[in-house]
Design a protein around this nucleic acid. Structure first.
Lengths: 221, 221
DNA sequence: TGACTAACGTACTGGTTCGTACATTATCCC
DNA sequence: GGGATAATGTACGAACCAGTACGTTAGTCA
């Protein structure tokens, strides 16, 4: 998530708009993720930056727009990662397991993003709704799922009539919950879902779950 | 979640400590769920109550303790609902499906509770940690899962070595995500996971997923 | 019935926090 | 090199908001 480039001519503390904006976004991401939208402090963000509060308002307008910008960049990182997905050389079963694992890994590697999404949901996705970029961001992962599903259903490996969006929701829910609800779950059930020594266990569990769901014969209702 | 009893002698605006406290908790639950911990306004809670801000501090001490009290009551409601669980007369497969469905229904019926849990996770479960009651609340549902799993594994219907806490996490993640991330998911993928006409679809999907996972033969790793 | 206490109301304060008015400097381009 | 403009810093205001000082009333029990 950190994307502040070193200044072209290092050492010299010259003016650099792009760099200042990136630094603000980095720090704001951490602050919003730490404390939620209303808990986050613009002064705190400014203090942790090499610039001042004035700059935050100069570049981003106000707190709300700053949060939207943070969301936009965070979702942009996701989309970029999803575009790297390459599972076309695998058979459908292996491909869907791989995709699930990559989703799992990505959630684990970006807990701040998970928190931002939780926070945005508390605000009824109002910032996404007001962002042109986010309203049309799309999801490469969804296209990949669609392709794998088609192939799996065509070859008869997968049960028919499973929808790509639904499967994406299924995979995401497991990955998301594990990170987002880590604290309450840990406090109530005494188990840390994100403990490193449990990582492989839950990664395999997710894959097993998705494959089992896709390959099971349904008992007619 | 609403539990304010009508006053014994209706009409008369007499003093009633229990009733005042319950009303504060009702309104506070909605306000915290609406806006998050820091977004919630004590003045707003007071305004929506038939009493004053003074009473909130009189009974609950401060905002933090009020939120903790809200959480305690919300989790208490869950525990009570879980104690009603009665699936012992069903075979393991039907029992676990029924349990999943009841969990599904409960999440759908209590969106405010879901939001409170999301909010509490943003605060790293600090309030649960500081609450004696919540630290030891337990989970009747977990006991039920344990019993069903044992029976299913004993009779060979279920794959061995599935842990009750893990299965609970799996079921919860699907139910929780569907409600908690409804807004961002809807905004990004154009599908309302909580749309009434999709309800049965997702309910069945959850059951299918859990059963498939529990009855699938694992491919040795 | 009267005194004691739990329950309640009003009005305020002190600190916090978003946002800005105003002043200044670096950099780019002609 | 000088004018224009983008980028930056300082200091402050106004509103908001958690929490409280102080005063009042209803119920209860001796």
């Amino acid at each position: 998530m950190t994307s502040v480039d070193e200044p072209a001519r290092s050492g010299a503390r010259t003016r650099d708009a792009a760099r200042t904006q990136a630094e603000i976004l980095d720090v704001a991401t951490r602050e919003f993720a730490r404390a939620g939208y209303d808990g986050a402090r613009v002064d705190e963000i400014a203090a942790r930056t090499r610039t001042t509060k004035r700059m935050i308002y100069y570049y981003f307008g106000n707190k709300e727009q700053l949060f939207t910008a943070v969301l936009e960049r965070a979702y942009g990182v996701i989309r970029e990662a999803e575009q790297e997905l390459d599972v076309d050389h695998l058979d459908p079963v292996a491909a869907i397991r791989r995709l699930a694992e990559l989703t799992f890994d990505h959630h684990e590697r970006h807990p701040d993003f998970i928190r931002l999404v939780s926070i945005e949901n508390i605000h009824d996705a109002a910032h996404i709704a007001s962002s042109e970029m986010l309203a049309s961001i799309g999801s490469p992962a969804l296209d990949v799922i669609r392709r794998i599903l088609e192939e799996g259903q065509r070859t008869g490996l997968f049960t028919a009539d499973v929808d790509a969006v639904d499967l994406h929701a299924m995979i995401s829910s497991f990955c998301f919950f594990r990170v987002a609800n880590r604290h309450t779950f840990g406090a109530l059930f005494g188990r840390d879902l994100v403990a490193p020594e449990q990582r492989e266990h839950y990664r395999a569990m997710l894959g097993d779950m998705v494959i089992a769901y896709l390959t099971a014969e349904r008992t007619a209702g």
